[in-house]
Structure formats: structure tokens, C-alpha cells
Amino acid sequence: MLPERRGDLLILTATLLASAGWLFSKEAISALPPAGFVGWRFVLAALILLPFCYRQLRATSFANLLKTAGIGLVMTLNLIFWIQAVMHSDGIGEGAFIMSLAMLMVPPLAWLLFRERPGRQFWLALPIAVTGLFLLTSGNGLSLSLGQLLFLLASVSLALYFSLNSRFARRVDPMALTFVQLAVTGIMHLGYSALFERWPEQVAPDIWGWFAASVLLATSLRFFCQSAGQKFSNVANAALIMMLEPIWTVLISVFWYHEPMPVQKIMGCVLILLALLSFRSRALYEWYRNRRAMKVRRET
């Protein structure tokens, strides 16, 4: 198999695992305290990754480790909003599409924080995304439900994480970066859980099964597949494949939770996908043009 195809397959596997992670998490927190669940999920996932990034961690300067941990605090905020949103929502498909809007929230945050003006693609995609969000969430009239509001806050905090992480990620090995941020997120959630949550005296075996799937499949294996896939897959392919995550999540939610998907919500999801494709259109065109030029050079 060609390396690029292998990379695409790994990225596709990562999106499927990420989508399944929504189901694993919602089932697990039906009996486990949400912050405690996230804490142990991320701490254990970090420990599983540790043998694969120990050398890279030792080679990273203390200053860079501190900055990585600081960005991990933003991830912590994102996970707080996300897990609460999952807990307060009847389904997960709608939330996955709201979370996918984080990509479109990055340019205005970069404009606010780093004085980087959004490009033309952002302004073209923005009204499409806003219309899609309105159709997706207007089942309750003009007001947002608690779950929808929490998903929107999670999307904004995820965009902030992307904005900060993209400016720093190249300084630290990806596996080391992932380990530190997972560990920080897990430790912070465990601290909150110890102070404010109470664990049940008994937990059913199937709940521990969902928890194990969250740690091993939706976190450790997912991040490994994503990191490994990005080494071989080109940026444009990876971006397109990762857009499939909310689609898989909707299918899982409709099948497992019988989440209603009336025409209005379907149209909202379609418009959000169109907005994301429009936003990435220039990058996709540049990738296609460069690839075509390389093919012509090889043939001549």
C-alpha cells in the first residue's frame, strides 16, 4: 500500500474512533461522575503513550514543557464544557456538528489575539455556517437548550486551543505534546472530581467496559492513528477526512439513541459541512494544483 493511502486510512480510522468516543463517553457518564471519568480517561491514556514518547520528553526543554502544559489548561476548559454538554444532551449528533464549527471560529480568534485578518474564504463561509447553525438548533425557537449552549462554548474553547496550539506545536514532538496535554487535562479533572464529585459505591461491569473503550480506543489508539496518519497523508486529504467525524457521530446517535433528524436539522448539518468545505476550498485547490504540477513534471 502506498504511504499516502496508508496515511489516509489511519486518519479515517481516527475519525471513526473519535466518533465512537462520543458514544463511549455518554454511556460511561450515565453511572460515573463526568469530571472523574474524563480525568481517569486522560491520565490512563497519557500513561499508555508515555513509553512511546519518553525520549522525546527528555529532549524537550523545561520552558517548552511549561508552555505545552499551559495549552493543556485550555484543553481542560474545552473538555469541561464538552463532557457537561454530552451529559445534558439527549443525542450526540447535533453536538458533533456544533463542535465542528470550531474550525471556523479560529480565524476571528486569531484576529483578536494575534491581529491576523481572516481571509476571503472565512467571510464566504460565515453566513452559510450561521444559517446552518440556526437550522440545526432552532427546534426550541430562538433560544438554545443547555446542551446546545454548552456545545457552543466547547466549540469556542476548542477554537482557542487550535489557535494557540498551531503556533506552538512545531516546537515540540507531536507525541510528547499529546502526552503532556492529556496528562494536564486528566490531572486537572481528577482534582476537580476529588473536591466536588462523589463516586458511586458500585459500578456495573458494562460501565467499566465503556470506560475501557474510551481510554484504549477513543483516546490512546485514536491519537496514535491521527499522529501516524498525519506523517503520511497530505494536509488536504487529512482535512477532508476529518470532516467526516460529525457525520459518523450523527449516524451513531440515530442508530443508538434514535436521535430525531427532521429535514430542518439535516439541512443545518449540510450547510455546516458546505461552510467547512468552502472555508477549506483554497487550501484544497492549492493542493490539487501542486499535485497536478508535480505529476506533469514527472511525466516530462
Results as ranks from 00 to 15, higher is better:
65 L>N: 11
15 T>A: 08
94 E>A: 11
136 L>Y: 02
275 A>K: 05
17 L>M: 13
181 Q>S: 07
66 L>I: 12
92 I>Q: 06
19 S>Y: 07
79 L>E: 09
147 G>F: 03
256 W>N: 03
155 S>P: 01
139 G>S: 07
239 A>V: 08
211 F>I: 08
62 F>I: 14
130 V>W: 08
172 V>M: 07
259 E>F: 10
145 S>D: 14
215 V>R: 01
173 D>C: 08
4 E>Q: 14
56 Q>Y: 01
23 L>F: 14
97 F>R: 06
57 L>N: 04
185 T>I: 01
13 T>H: 00
68 T>D: 15
256 W>L: 07
226 Q>H: 12
97 F>T: 05
82 W>D: 04
23 L>H: 04
42 F>D: 01
8 D>V: 04
63 A>K: 15
4 E>T: 12
179 F>Y: 13
208 W>D: 11
1 M>N: 11
72 G>L: 14
30 S>N: 10
172 V>F: 07
81 F>M: 13
195 L>H: 01
4 E>I: 13
51 P>Y: 00
145 S>A: 13
298 R>M: 14
234 N>I: 04
16 L>K: 01
167 R>F: 06
64 N>E: 15
24 F>H: 08
203 V>C: 02
193 S>I: 00
116 E>N: 10
258 H>I: 05
135 L>N: 06
294 M>A: 14
53 C>Q: 00
156 V>F: 15
109 L>R: 01
75 M>T: 09
65 L>K: 15
271 L>E: 02
134 F>P: 00
223 F>A: 09
212 A>P: 07
175 M>H: 10
109 L>N: 03
263 V>T: 15
127 P>A: 01
277 L>E: 02
28 A>T: 04
127 P>W: 00
60 T>C: 15
284 L>H: 10
131 T>H: 00
167 R>C: 06
78 N>W: 14
35 A>N: 12
285 Y>M: 12
197 E>I: 00
93 G>V: 04
54 Y>Q: 05
47 L>V: 13
180 V>C: 11
257 Y>N: 11
255 F>M: 15
111 W>L: 09
144 L>G: 10
292 R>I: 12
210 W>F: 13
34 P>H: 05
15 T>F: 03
160 L>Y: 06
224 F>R: 12
161 Y>P: 00
169 A>Q: 09
10 L>G: 05
168 F>K: 10
143 S>E: 08
6 R>W: 08
21 G>E: 10
118 P>D: 04
32 L>A: 09
195 L>F: 09
231 K>E: 12
59 A>L: 15
151 F>C: 03
29 I>S: 02
206 D>Q: 14
236 A>V: 05
222 R>D: 11
299 E>V: 04
180 V>E: 04
287 W>V: 01
296 V>M: 12
84 Q>L: 14
228 A>R: 15
57 L>R: 03
278 S>H: 03
60 T>G: 13
222 R>Q: 13
60 T>N: 13
158 L>I: 11
168 F>S: 08
46 A>K: 03
202 Q>N: 09
282 R>V: 11
252 I>W: 02
3 P>T: 06
277 L>W: 05
24 F>G: 09
208 W>G: 09
217 L>D: 03
270 V>G: 11
232 F>I: 00
210 W>C: 06
88 H>N: 14
296 V>T: 10
184 V>I: 15
